[in-house]
Nucleic acid binder design. Structure first.
Lengths: 154, 154
DNA sequence: CGTCTGGATTTCAAATGCGAACCCATTCAG
DNA sequence: CTGAATGGGTTCGCATTTGAAATCCAGACG
């Protein structure tokens, strides 16, 4: 039961599509795992490395791309008595991916979690009930998925 | 100005984390591009291929994984006078990724679109004003990003 | 001075990727 | 019946990317 009508082609060419561009930037296993860690507060090369267990070459390359693309900012930190080291923190551009990664977490909870209680959930400050990713109209009221309509420019 | 406190490690081990599991399933350039096309209504092997321009071997493999993982359903279609062919349609599991891909589209519009009008946008049925990805509480009221608090199980 | 430590680059085998050509079953045209 | 066309793949080499380990490098410290 698919509401999506058959198409031979997407209505938007991949080279104009910002979704395709976004996939180019973040659509990679390691890149997404790096962003996941960054959103949890990881900032340092070796911390990323021991968290991800990925080759240092790969990590080094991905961090560089993420900095080039503007998702991470490279800056120095200095613990007293140690030499200055770079750390990688999320820029506003990177931070604004949070809703998407939280949405993906909840998708994983729903479909891959095997019925177990999710290890992490999200609430509104001061409240105990969970929040979830959704769509809202201009006044901030929820729009159900089946109410969403794509509109092509033209 | 990062509100995220420094962490040496994510609070949730990757092998328990449903975000990490989700990334394992969809965190791949081609996989995401396939899902993008599928959400636009593409269903057939050659249509995917000519849209993505990816090697047929890769496409064949990714479609197989997506079917195995439950995001796509393989079924037959038959145009009159032609022989039966398989087509790949989104399952409910795959369809429920829509909000995430739309969110990613809007992220791309905001950060990668170079100020141009996005080629595609989304509205609520019957309305003309755009909708956006956000968080809502249990009653469907928007929660601002700075109000979000993670809660660990345990 | 020599050592330690966090951050990276070099090296090289193994895996994955790519592109092109090929295969297979069916349907249609002559 | 023969032969081309069509949609959906697989096979085959080669190029790139990965992975794991070893190495390098700069500054603090004893």
């Amino acid at each position: 039961m698919t509401q999506i009508p058959l198409a031979r082609r997407s209505p938007v060419q991949p080279d104009v599509c910002n979704l395709a561009k976004a996939i180019d930037v973040v659509g990679d296993r390691w890149t997404l795992l790096i962003l996941r860690a960054a959103l949890y507060g990881v900032r340092r090369f070796d911390d990323f490395q021991s968290e991800l267990g990925c080759p240092r070459t790969v990590l080094s390359g991905r961090l560089k791309s993420l900095v080039d693309d503007g998702l991470l900012t490279k800056r120095s930190y200095k613990s007293p008595g140690k030499r200055a080291r770079p750390e990688y923190v999320l820029s506003p551009m990177g931070l604004s991916l949070r809703p998407i990664l939280i949405g993906l977490t909840q998708w994983g909870d729903a479909w891959l979690g095997k019925g177990e209680t999710p290890p992490i959930s999200f609430t509104k400050a001061g409240s105990k009930s969970a929040i979830r990713a959704a769509f809202v109209d201009i006044e901030g009221r929820e729009v159900r998925p089946d109410q969403i309509r794509p509109v092509l420019r033209g």
